[in-house]
Design a protein around this nucleic acid. Sequence first.
DNA 1: GTATGTGAATCTCTTCACAGCA
DNA 2: TGCTGTGAAGAGATTCACATAC
Lengths: 205, 205
Amino acid sequence: MRYHKIPDETVKRLPRYLRAAVLLRRGGKKKLSSSELAEFIGSNSTQIRKDFSYFGSFGTRGVGYDTQKLIKQISKILKLDGQREAILIGVGNLGSAILAYEGFSIYGLLIKAVFDNNLRKIGKKLNGLVIEDIAKLKSIRPKKIKMAILTVPSNQAQHVTDKLVDNNIRGILNFTSCRIEVPRKVKVVSIDIALDMARLPYYMQ
Amino acid sequence: MRYHKIPDETVKRLPRYLRAAVLLRRGGKKKLSSSELAEFIGSNSTQIRKDFSYFGSFGTRGVGYDTQKLIKQISKILKLDGQREAILIGVGNLGSAILAYEGFSIYGLLIKAVFDNNLRKIGKKLNGLVIEDIAKLKSIRPKKIKMAILTVPSNQAQHVTDKLVDNNIRGILNFTSCRIEVPRKVKVVSIDIALDMARLPYYMQ
DNA sequence: GTATGTGAATCTCTTCACAGCA
DNA sequence: TGCTGTGAAGAGATTCACATAC
């Protein structure tokens, strides 16, 4: 394989492939072909093979992919084989829901600490974690946590983001509807619920 | 303007433009240029003008856009000027959080009814709405509600989706991590929290 | 025979460059 | 002069077609 810039769309699809492979593996599948994978996630096999090809060739011609090996390969590409711990900031309705959410585990992602600025919440326990004071954010530094889930009110988004960056956070999953400014070394992925909801009527005509 | 197929990426950006315009209008802006809008949302002015151009031309050369008129135009394109009511199915942690979420209002979207299958929840009140039995879904038909937010556990996703489709739902905001099968006339937009979280480590290297 | 891996062709989207109009 | 609107060029992503390997 020659050098290629990896399409962002490819990176976005990899977690899907990973989840599918894990689920199929759990279901007993030891070998997996690109068409089986495509069928499972509603994609097409050429796309999947092309996506994989950017990172090397990890299948066997005429046979397919070793499911376990594929899981390892994708995990490695996505850097899900290393540091996978995150903190969550903002224990409102959405924050609490995400704390209770079980979908992260399939990727080995784990929320290790929770912060809020509300004195009535600090000290309380939620999903096995004691809610900490956001002023004590630097306690995460020795733990080397690099990811944060941001579920604070919009008007606090930038302020809290700055604090996160100061405390070595390098990736933020942003649930606020604001654009947050970060240094180039920090990556933000945003989920904007209302934004996605707002285009439904367009498609429904 | 000649005929053009509208890029899906354009449609995805329209809600952002709309929100920005509404916020800027609230801030007192009566005229708005594409570069001001671009600055506000972190995009670029050419992109914005091109996006608008697919739907006609609603600015004034040398001047910019009338903010209020722009809001109307985008709302009309997105069909946010008509039926904007939705139901929510599955009052777990995430469902409750979304029910309490205030971000929909800027688009005029409204959750009008909530359903669950848990007998201990049915009849209880949440955010001013009584939780109804999912078996009584057909009560929405006379209300002509066409949108649903799906926050049920994954193993119920397809079953509940089928019921929604039977009851004239034509657009679904899907928070489950499954692919749900629907007839072609029904549109699904999916938000998969773990999927977006799982690619953060990749970008953080 | 069967399924992967990949250049080339195609399709889609973004950016450029500038014409058109207040 | 200033900002919109838009064909044309360029960049990016998908699909095709087939060589390659088991």
